[in-house]
């Protein structure tokens, strides 16, 4: 019986993408819970919320760059200021199809970012991520 991730947080303004990612995660069946946020602000709100005195601290965060309201970079700035007790375990930046090399360079300089993925996720990609960051869970 393999272990499941407690919680995965999806941050993307594109409803369709969130739907697809949720679908993929369900297919891989690797998480107890999938949370979605439309932009950075919503995501921060979720991270700062408490249930039974605990912050959700998702195991995995997928972050989109291009979002209205608070974009990915702005979110990372705020995220950096958060208490360790509020941060998630792994943050993955979702590189959009823009293929902008500047974005890649920029994200490499942010310590909270653990890696990059192209959008949209597929089952194979998701399995790869689990293998890389959550070996115990496979």
């Amino acid at each position: 019986m393999k272990k499941k991730l407690n919680c995965i947080l999806l941050i993307d303004d594109d409803d369709a993408i969130n739907f697809i990612h949720d679908w993929v995660i369900n297919k891989v069946d690797c998480a107890e819970k999938v949370e979605m946020a439309e932009n950075g602000i919503e995501a921060l709100k979720y991270l700062e919320s408490t249930s039974e005195g605990k912050h959700p601290q998702p195991d995995l965060i997928f972050l989109d760059i291009n979002m209205p309201g608070m974009n990915g970079w702005e979110f990372l700035e705020e995220y950096h200021k958060l208490d360790e007790s509020k941060k998630g375990k792994i943050v993955l930046v979702m590189l959009t199809s823009s293929l902008n090399p500047d974005d890649l360079t920029k994200s490499k300089n942010i310590i909270e970012v653990s890696g990059f993925q192209n959008k949209p996720l597929t089952v194979e990609l998701m399995q790869g991520i689990l293998k890389e960051h959550f070996e115990d869970y496979l």
Partner: peptide
């Protein structure tokens, strides 16, 4: 650039959805 960016995302989404 903008065009590719803005069109690519929905198109790839459509692809994914189609697969599903």
């Amino acid at each position: 650039h903008i065009t590719s960016h803005n069109l690519r995302a929905p198109v790839s989404n459509l692809n994914s959805l189609l697969n599903f």
